[in-house]
């Protein structure tokens, strides 16, 4: 299995969107995909069409002492995913700290080998946004750790203050191509030697929230949209990147 984590530089940059869409895109390219929601917001499931009232997920399963993988679902299009769930865990009082999430992830990664999943399954993890002064949540635990940012001055400044972020590859989301400022910021991020920026940026596209309103990704609701093409391209890049690291290894 290959593990990829996505984490927002701050809240609301579109991390969950990226996880859902990359998962869908990889699935469409014939890869077996498992999405894991480690974000207490529990929003990933909405993109995958899960009914509101179902409360099950990772945390309820762990609380009840049942195996976590029994909380896995399959979306209508065939993407496997594990929602975070809504039940509160005894540990929730401390606010699902970094160490708790990391510990869960370690456990999951260990036990995942026992699952009857395909050899080359891609597991994409949705992490809660980066807190002040924190390192990447799953640093050293995953093959690829993407940091999601928007090309706005806020993100740019925040990124500059935190540089260098070891192991992070920056994914630019919601680029307004018609804004010279955002294009310049994208160029500056790409030119910076301290961080590695992905060669593909995802453009701002109203099709994304509209698809979410249908509890779908753009691949179902608006396949011709820019966002669908961008995410598909990004998925291809990601897969080739993983293959390369395999070669190196």
């Amino acid at each position: 299995m290959k593990w990829i984590a996505l984490q927002g530089l701050k809240g609301g940059v579109g991390t969950t969107t990226a996880v859902a869409h990359l998962g869908e895109a990889c699935h469409r390219q014939g890869r077996s995909v498992l999405l894991l929601d480690l974000s207490p917001g529990n929003l990933l499931r909405i993109y995958l069409g899960m009914p509101w009232e179902v409360r099950r997920g990772l945390v309820p399963a762990l609380t009840a002492g049942t195996p976590w993988y029994q909380a896995a679902y399959r979306s209508a299009s065939g993407v496997q995913f594990i929602p975070f769930g809504v039940e509160s865990h005894p540990l929730a009082e401390q606010g699902y700290s970094r160490s708790v999430l990391r510990q869960w992830f370690r456990q999951i990664r260990q036990e995942a080998a026992e699952l009857q999943l395909q050899e080359d399954t891609l597991c994409i993890v949705d992490c809660p946004a980066l807190g002040p002064g924190e390192d990447l949540l799953l640093q050293d635990l995953v093959e690829l750790h993407l940091l999601v940012v928007n090309p706005d001055p806020g993100c740019f400044a925040s990124l500059r203050q935190r540089e260098p972020l070891p192991g992070a590859q920056v994914l630019i989301n919601r680029l307004h191509a018609e804004s010279p400022l955002e294009c310049d910021l994208q160029d500056m991020m790409m030119a910076s030697p301290a961080v590695q920026v992905l060669p593909v940026a995802v453009q701002q596209d109203s099709h994304v929230p509209e698809s979410l309103a249908w509890k779908q990704t753009v691949f179902q609701a608006a396949p011709a949209s820019q966002a669908a093409q961008d995410f598909a391209l990004l998925a291809s890049w990601m897969l080739s990147q993983l293959r390369e690291t395999e070669h190196v290894a």
Binding site: Q203, D205, S206, H207, A224, S225, Q226, A227
Partner: peptide, 8 residues
């Protein structure tokens, strides 16, 4: 209109 982007 409405920042809908379509790639072609």
């Amino acid at each position: 209109p409405g920042l809908h982007r379509v790639q072609t």
